[in-house]
Each structure stands twice: as C-alpha cells, then as structure tokens.
Amino acid sequence: MKITLRIWRQPDRDAAGAMATYEVDGISPDMSFLEMLDVLNEELALAGGDPVAFDHDCREGICGMCSLVINGLAHGPEALTTACQLYMRHFTDGQVIDVEPWRATPFPVLKDLVVDRGALDRIVAAGGYISAPTGAAPEAHSVPVPRKDAERAFDAAACIGCGACVAACPNGSASLFLGAKITHLGALPQGQPERDARALAMVEQHDAEGFGGCSQIGECTAVCPAGIPLDMISQLNHDVLAALPRGKDQRG
C-alpha cells in the first residue's frame, strides 16, 4: 500500500506547529497503524531527519499510551480499538490520512503527536483510591460483593486512561474518564466510606485542570476503546450531586 500522511509536527511545547506531508510506500495491510509510523520514522531517520514523536508502549490495546487523532477521530475509524490495534487494512491504497495529537487545553503538546496527560493522573491522585490499613491481604470472602456491582466495577475499571474521551469531546471534558473512575470504586463496598469525598475531590480536580463540562453529546463513549458507557457520567453526576448537600469531606 502507498499512503500519504499529513502529520502534525511541533518541535517542542512552546513552538508553533504545522501539518507536514509524507509519503510512505510498501505498507502491508497487516501492519498496525503504529508499525506504519515506524516505517515512516525509519525512512526519516535514515535520511537524517527528525522522526515523528508519538506515544506508544504495550501495542496490545491495554496500556492507554496511544493518543492519535486519525482523520479527525480519536484512535481512528474502528470502534472499541486503540490506534495500536488499528490495522492498515482499514484504509485504502493511496489514501490521505491526517494524524494529529489529542487536542485540549489541559493536554499541552510536548512534541509532534505526544501530549502531556498528567492532568488525568492528578484527577486520580485527588481521590481515585481507597484508604485501607496495610498488612496481609484480607480474606476474599470477608466482604461479599453482589455480582451486579462487581460487574459494574469491572466494566468501569476497563478504562485505560488514554484520554480519547477528552480528545473527542466538543466541550473538552474528561467526564467519561472521571465517571469511570468514580463508578469503579463507588460500586464496591470498599469504596463506600470515601464515596462522597472522592466524588467531590475528583470533580474539583477535573475542573481545576481546565476540562469542560459534559453536555451528554456522547462522542466520548463512541470513540472509547474500552467501551465505557455514557451512563457512567450520569453516575458521576449522581454521586457529586448527592455529596454536595452532605458537603462532607472526610479527609478534611
């Protein structure tokens, strides 16, 4: 396959960026999108140029490092798929493909297609945990968890924190990420003591990072590679609105 790529190039955080056009030939339909970028980078390096910087790690769809907006869609055209699991057979020979980084004010571009997603880490640090005494792991049956709640928590825990929801959201909101994290712990008995404080602290951090609000458009869930459903945002809204009148922050 021969592919024409239009890729966002930006030398560093403070520099202005622009789209640059590259041609790559000899692409196998069985290559992943990242392997196709590897081919381009090998050619660029051999020619003495600067390879395109992009985030990647496990390349099997579970680490959440991929962050490519391909033809205007976060993670490209395939549903429930990260960019690393996207194969070139989903494109046509001779196609022009636009590749851009996640765009949101809380995600500054560091170089080319790499953005700083530390804002998501700080949201988790604000309350995405439970406080439990350390020591030996408790006996698994000591706290029974209804199957429905366990399933719900597992579905929420599937979030890999890639930030595609933010990239796709017309409001630049990280509500789907936030909803997944709040639902994950809020559905389990172990998460109950800090449920109110967690919801308030995490939503405060979310807003302080500069993410927008959720207007229930649903683009986030459509691009989410982990299939986080839109109703987890409603769970987040429920937990925050329920905690507000109680106004208790157990951690002071």
Binding site: G72, E100, A104, P170, N171, G172, D207, G210, G213, S215
Partner: peptide, 30 residues
C-alpha cells in the same frame, strides 16, 4: 469553560476536515 478547554474551537479543533460531524452525535446535541 468548554471554549477555554478547547482553545475556543470546540468540536472544530482538528485541522482534518474528515469526520467533522463526529461519530454519533445528533444535530440537536450540537
């Protein structure tokens, strides 16, 4: 806040002209 979070460009902040209408959002929603 939504404009501040998206550099003032909302759903039109990508240079690619492909898929401008997103994946599944309704006309009513935007």
């Amino acid at each position: 806040r939504a404009r501040a979070a998206t550099g003032g460009r909302g759903g039109y902040r990508y240079l690619s002209t492909a898929n401008r209408r997103g994946v599944q959002r309704s006309y009513a929603s935007f």
